[in-house]
Design a protein around this nucleic acid. Sequence first.
DNA 1: CGGGTAACCTAACAAGCGTTAGTTTCAGCG
DNA 2: CGCTGAAACTAACGCTTGTTAGGTTACCCG
Lengths: 193, 193
Amino acid sequence: MAIDRKEQIYSTARSLFSERGYHATTVRDIARELNLQGGSLYAHILSKEDVLWEIVNRAADQFLASVEPIVASNLPPSQKLRAMIRAHIGVVAADLADATIFLHEWKFLGEERRQSVAARRNQYESLYRQVVEDGIHSGDFAPANPKMAALLVLSAVNWLPQWYNPGGPLSPDEVADVFSELILRGLERICTA
Amino acid sequence: MAIDRKEQIYSTARSLFSERGYHATTVRDIARELNLQGGSLYAHILSKEDVLWEIVNRAADQFLASVEPIVASNLPPSQKLRAMIRAHIGVVAADLADATIFLHEWKFLGEERRQSVAARRNQYESLYRQVVEDGIHSGDFAPANPKMAALLVLSAVNWLPQWYNPGGPLSPDEVADVFSELILRGLERICTA
DNA sequence: CGGGTAACCTAACAAGCGTTAGTTTCAGCG
DNA sequence: CGCTGAAACTAACGCTTGTTAGGTTACCCG
């Protein structure tokens, strides 16, 4: 049985880091979950921080990879935004823990690594900003404040891990569609009888 | 000079807990900021967790107190929602640290206290849900999914502490108005030429 | 002036942390 | 069978954690 202990460690760490937070999770906690002694992990990992680093980076990869092709496509802005929200929520739903760690626990990396993650997070957010700005300039969107409009979208998708339950009544795509509709068309009844 | 050391401790803890997180902040960190020794704090506090408890509870008070009178008023739903968003952002802007701790660090309280906070958070969120549902039932809002619509509003206000800078170009009220407009009227240009 | 008290310091406690070194176990293979 | 290597264990390291006990300072009130 070619069990990959390293991956098991990452997987366990993902659960615990996202549940309790990085600092409240000890190396021995992770080991216990795998029926190991604390020190035994160091046959597979270099340090606790390295584990966090690997998890955060993989999550960043997932989010960026899911959204970049959509930005690069030539869909109209509103379709792009819908597709991006769908893609993002798909990634979140596939692993809530990854998303939580990517959003919150990355702060506990060392200076250098933290900056690297901050850059990728900014990169991700700027993709949303870019689509919103394109939509406003092309006239597809109302002449809103583009920064604030992008922030509204990002707020919606970034807050998702705090409440979304994959076993709940709405599928990831359904959640995405409802949010897209609300963001694009608004809540107030102004155009219909 | 009647300096209230207890309040100074709370204030320092607020900064540090919100910057580094509860577990990454040590009692000695707080003391150092006040030119004290670690143990000296215990003349004023009972435990580190008690400090967190006090901070979280005060923040919960602030948020609830700012929004409850609006819900109880007889404004139309859309005006209520605008006023609530204004009130919330006002509280956030008055102390970003409080908001961050209220949203994230409360999880590290002991079982009993954590449940008490969870209840108050639910109470707060249900106020928004209630206003949205009223608006939908009265016909002021489009017949959207009320849970999701409330979640969109809550996402926007809950994500605020992550990006809002009180020294930035937009005043709290301006931010609130822009968000209100976007949420109520939507981003897409559908009713205008 | 003198006694009390609140605030602080020093020093230490037990427990827990991330991490390392040395040793044991055991399957795979000549 | 005996060797090899990986993977686990035990045991400890140096340090930090939250917290406490006991002594010292300094100020208020009679």
